[in-house]
Amino acid sequence: MATETEHAAGEAAAAAEVALGTPPEAAGPGMPQLAFETFSNQIFWLVVALVIIYFVMSRIALPRIAGVLAERQGTITNDLAAAEELKQKAVDAEEAYKKALADARTEAQKIAAETKAEIQADLDAAKAKADAEISAKTAESEKAISEIRAGAVDSASAVAKDTVEAILAAMGFSADKAAVDAAVADRMKG
């Protein structure tokens, strides 16, 4: 490999010789890049450096970084899965909450309807009772009123008869009781 390099570099050196106008053998003025006596040194130390870097990379550094990256990827994936799970839980909880709310609402409506019906029933009963009482009282009152009315008619005819008799007596007539009665009864009808 080194001889190939030197050969290739030799050709380049010939070109550089023309460009610089100084033969590289004239030590110094030529490009240090074409000082072939240093090539073995450079190549030797380069190979040493590359071998060390290669072993450090392939044995220590790269597996370590690959491990760290894989571990991080794993952690991220796990965290994402956990987050997904928690999100699902939250959604479930929300659904459960909504369901409970709907149930409670239905229950409340049911209770309200039941209560309403109960109250209505009580109300109806009370109303019926009151109606019955009212009608009983009305009937009683009507009876009393008719009694009072009948009493009033009797009293009125008695007062009328007495008044007629008194008027007749005052005028000096003796009253014919039967005739007076008939006359009063007749007028009372009118």
Binding site: T5, Q42, L46, V47
Partner: peptide
């Protein structure tokens, strides 16, 4: 910067 190095 050395051709010996880059050539290798």
């Amino acid at each position: 910067s050395h051709i010996a190095v880059t050539a290798v």
